[in-house]
Design a protein around this nucleic acid. Structure first.
Lengths: 129, 129
DNA sequence: TGTAGCGTTGACGTTTACGTAAGCGTGCTG
DNA sequence: CAGCACGCTTACGTAAACGTCAACGCTACA
């Protein structure tokens, strides 16, 4: 059974990006859809890669960093060195993610106090019109 | 007692950015140090603002977004509309942070399986030299 | 048959976030 | 007093991440 495939505009609609963006990611070697003639055909695997990219971007990774995320996902590891390198990259990412968690928690705290200040200030205003 | 102040290079060293970057943030209206002649003098408040910017950047906020973070921190709220607007912005940020938490958790899971695959593959390799 | 929708390939434009270099003043210090 | 560290402004350069045409090909369909 042939797995489902997607057109570029299907993917674009579903994941809320432009087709230009998808083609750009391909230019950068982050996606490698097959072709039917000229037309790009995307597999579920391509779709996953694209989602990885977008998720990475949401937490501020550069496209280059997203690319390594895809490499982590792809089972390309064949020799010992590659694999050890890969484990290193993974550990690096973990550290980065943990820093981001701290940053987010810190920001949430700051939003708490900001909101408190706002509400307090609103209390001070009798009943503005 | 006058609070501590900082020179631009002190801040740069401590927070690991270039002086160029600090001046750039000022150009963008995100920092407003006082002057002693030409020289910029930074207060602890400026330092906090800078830290907010850097933290924001680490989790992928644009400088424009970081600027609103600073506004949230600054008690500039004086009239009712401003304050209500501010509360809206705060709520927005919260949603964004929660999405980022989800993204990070998801990535951590993916790193888990990536690491597992790596280790499994390493087991397969007898004892490469 | 034309026109609307989907796809393609260039190629140039734009915004963001700084880097880099030139040229200058200030203040210590060997 | 030469040189170095530190600071300033002005201004051009640049990499990343797309946006925005232009010009074209297929297919369906009213």
């Amino acid at each position: 059974m042939a797995a489902k495939t997607y057109s570029i505009s299907e993917l674009a609609r579903e994941l809320d990006v432009t087709t230009r963006t998808i083609r750009f990611y391909e230019e950068q070697g982050m996606l490698t859809p097959t072709r039917r003639g000229q037309e790009r055909i995307y597999t579920p695997r391509d779709r996953v890669a694209l989602k990885l990219i977008l998720r990475g971007k949401r937490i501020g990774f550069s496209l280059a960093e997203c690319k390594t995320l895809i490499e982590l996902y792809d089972p390309q590891g064949d020799n010992r060195n590659q694999l050890t390198l890969m484990l290193g990259k993974i550990a690096e990412r973990r550290l980065q993610l943990e820093q981001q968690l701290l940053d987010i928690q810190q920001m949430q705290l700051e939003l708490d106090t900001a909101e408190e200040r706002c509400r307090a200030a609103l209390q001070q205003i009798p009943e503005a019109g």
